[in-house]
Simulated assay, not measured.
Amino acid sequence: MRRYIAADLPEIRQRILDIHVEVRRRDFGLTGPFYDVERFDERLSTYSSRPGWSAVLGYEDGEPVGFCFGTALAPGTKWWNNMLTPLAADVTTETGTRTAALNEIVVRKPWRGHGVAWQLHEAWLNSRQEERVTLLVNPLNGDGAVQAVYEAWGYRKLGDQQPFPDSPVFSVMLRPVKPT
């Protein structure tokens, strides 16, 4: 596992994009504008421009096996704005140090089912200073199996949101960075 910060993105961008295409398009058949590599690259650029962005890439014998990345939610973030049912202010108020958003976690097929996603997740969280971490997951992925994995990792569902007009409706999940 190797940790990277925004200044390192030029070094790892193509690896991240290649894995995205391999997994999302080829393995899972996700198509449409939201999943296009250009749109994903735009989101990657946007996320990495925010303070506190970091990534973890996993390697085996020098070959990338997966990645995860995310950033801190800044005061005034729009993260919570697209909730289908609004949440209370005590849940959505951000300070810049309260909540980390895990934007992406992707593992290549040969390494799935071996705990690599958990290792990436934990390596990324180990460097985070925030109190809690949130993520979005498509509840239809794997007929709910992906969301169940996050629940097993200690996340709980807060509600649903659709952050982009052409994106799926995602479950919004939250857990402490350091589970008690």
Results as ranks from 00 to 15, higher is better:
2 R>H: 04
3 R>L: 09
7 A>M: 04
9 L>F: 03
10 P>H: 05
12 I>W: 03
15 R>N: 13
15 R>I: 14
21 V>L: 14
24 R>C: 15
25 R>T: 12
27 D>N: 13
28 F>Y: 14
28 F>D: 07
30 L>E: 14
30 L>F: 12
32 G>R: 09
34 F>D: 09
34 F>P: 02
35 Y>F: 15
36 D>M: 09
37 V>Q: 15
37 V>F: 02
38 E>M: 08
41 D>F: 02
41 D>V: 00
43 R>W: 08
44 L>Y: 04
44 L>H: 00
46 T>I: 10
47 Y>D: 08
48 S>V: 01
48 S>C: 11
49 S>F: 05
50 R>L: 15
53 W>L: 02
56 V>N: 05
58 G>Q: 06
60 E>Y: 06
60 E>F: 08
62 G>M: 05
67 F>C: 00
73 L>R: 05
73 L>C: 01
74 A>M: 11
75 P>D: 07
75 P>Y: 00
77 T>A: 01
80 W>L: 03
82 N>I: 01
83 M>I: 08
84 L>P: 04
85 T>F: 07
86 P>D: 03
87 L>F: 01
90 D>H: 12
91 V>L: 12
91 V>Q: 12
91 V>K: 08
92 T>I: 08
93 T>N: 09
94 E>Q: 07
94 E>P: 04
95 T>E: 02
98 R>C: 02
98 R>L: 03
100 A>P: 01
101 A>Y: 15
101 A>I: 11
103 N>D: 13
104 E>F: 05
104 E>V: 08
105 I>F: 05
105 I>T: 00
107 V>C: 11
109 K>R: 15
109 K>G: 06
110 P>L: 00
110 P>Q: 07
112 R>V: 02
113 G>P: 02
113 G>F: 07
115 G>V: 06
116 V>G: 01
116 V>A: 11
117 A>Y: 03
118 W>P: 04
118 W>T: 14
121 H>T: 05
124 W>D: 06
124 W>V: 09
127 S>C: 13
127 S>W: 12
135 L>T: 03
137 V>K: 08
139 P>R: 07
140 L>P: 03
143 D>W: 10
143 D>R: 14
145 A>P: 01
147 Q>D: 08
151 E>L: 00
155 Y>M: 07
155 Y>A: 07
156 R>M: 12
157 K>G: 02
157 K>N: 12
168 P>Y: 13
174 L>N: 11
178 K>T: 14
179 P>E: 01
